[in-house]
Design a protein around this nucleic acid. Sequence first.
DNA 1: TCAAAAGTGTTTCAGCTACACCCATGA
DNA 2: TCATGGGTGTAGCTGAAACACTTTTGA
Lengths: 261, 261
Amino acid sequence: MEDKNLEFRRRMAAFYEGVGDFLPHLSINCVIFGFNGEKLKVLVTNPFMTKTWLIPGDFIFKSESIDEAAYRSMRTQLGLEDIFLRQFRTFGESDRSFSLEMDEMFQLTHVAPNDYAWFTRRFVTIGYYACVDLQKSNPKPNVMFDSVRWIDIDEIDMLGFDHEDIVWEARRVLAKDIMDLPVIANLLPKEFTIPELQKLHESILDRDIDRGNFRSKILRTGILVKVGERQTASTRRPPGLYRFNMQQYEEVLQEENKIGF
Amino acid sequence: MEDKNLEFRRRMAAFYEGVGDFLPHLSINCVIFGFNGEKLKVLVTNPFMTKTWLIPGDFIFKSESIDEAAYRSMRTQLGLEDIFLRQFRTFGESDRSFSLEMDEMFQLTHVAPNDYAWFTRRFVTIGYYACVDLQKSNPKPNVMFDSVRWIDIDEIDMLGFDHEDIVWEARRVLAKDIMDLPVIANLLPKEFTIPELQKLHESILDRDIDRGNFRSKILRTGILVKVGERQTASTRRPPGLYRFNMQQYEEVLQEENKIGF
DNA sequence: TCAAAAGTGTTTCAGCTACACCCATGA
DNA sequence: TCATGGGTGTAGCTGAAACACTTTTGA
């Protein structure tokens, strides 16, 4: 235990050395969405030693753009190269500061809070959301964090700070974007079934969609290509396997008509 | 001339005294839309003595939220109390700094640039857009600015810095919001005609709409109330005068169906 | 009586919605 | 042979789009 704390304190001290290279009072936060075939998931992480859960965040180097900061951070966080990222809103309440969560961590790790005053100031955070393939991602905790885990979208009331609000807003924007941005492709593995795709839509839009209508409409757009049948051990009838025809996908999205449900 | 410069330098010096109360590296910028019955307009302003035109902006006090900063700034800028404001995006390129425009101003006003280094650092700016009634607004230039004026939406290539991009993006978002936010009501005077309302839609969406279809569709929603006829000096047939039934308006927007064209 | 803009109505057709029905499979 | 989930077809309705026609006014 003491070893872990010592190691942590060393890490923190090293990190704090470089804090002057960041833009002060500014951070990014990222709502990372995944899909397990049944439910929409969100990646959360907890500050070292605490039981508080937060969405991942990072700071912005003075030498990089805010988008670059988001990509850099998410690449290391997720162990992935190609990530779909989209800025959706900036949060800047006047009393928006990390201090509660930080204090908890400092107390548990026997760190003098005054040594790390930079962290506990007011922060304006720029919100991004990401869509990733659950199976390909390999999330790791960041410097100040302990562990990561995926939670269901309807469990987000467990989040600390104002992160529940941030996730809510991200989900609202995602539901809009689904109509005219190639988001969904990033949430699914290369090959998937139409019922899976429908469940994804349903969990994002938070309502039921008619099976037959979904099927015919999505096939009519021509953005799906059949690649065979799923060989399952013990389901009923084997559903067809599909992948996206990305070229067609992009073209359809260009048209005003879009893919709405 | 020298008097004006002296006065300006005094103003700048006084303003710079309080610069430490602002969040560093952060600003807000606001795209202010108006409508003159024919075309969509944007408010621009020019830094003291220069010929550069920019959209209005401001800084954020450490004690206020970003929304409060935007409202405060726009209230004084426009001489209006109730303003429709909406955050739409944050701009944060790594080389995003005011220095070119500032240098021009400093040179013309014989000010030593080093005295005002705070302004010429990198700035991340949070973009808002506003919709105002042209006839009610009474815009005034801000501390560092000379004058204000309204330009047509298709003249925005004259803007300096990256402000053309910002206006483009604001317009794109406005065109989307028109479907499900009560934006248009803020761009028109209390009473207006249906052809005017149609021209507003057309100038936001940048395409023609069928007269008959527009009319029947907008009347069917019940968000308009007839209040008489416009008595004009010299047109042909006098068009009907309408105002919004705001209560009905809000209700219609709540429904999923919305008011799309 | 003509031109121009306002206002009204009609026809057509694509596409959404809601169902009902068939198929394939494992128990 | 039955339950379950995958897959297909269709009838009805709604609303968008295009366009023709009427009305009101000033010249």
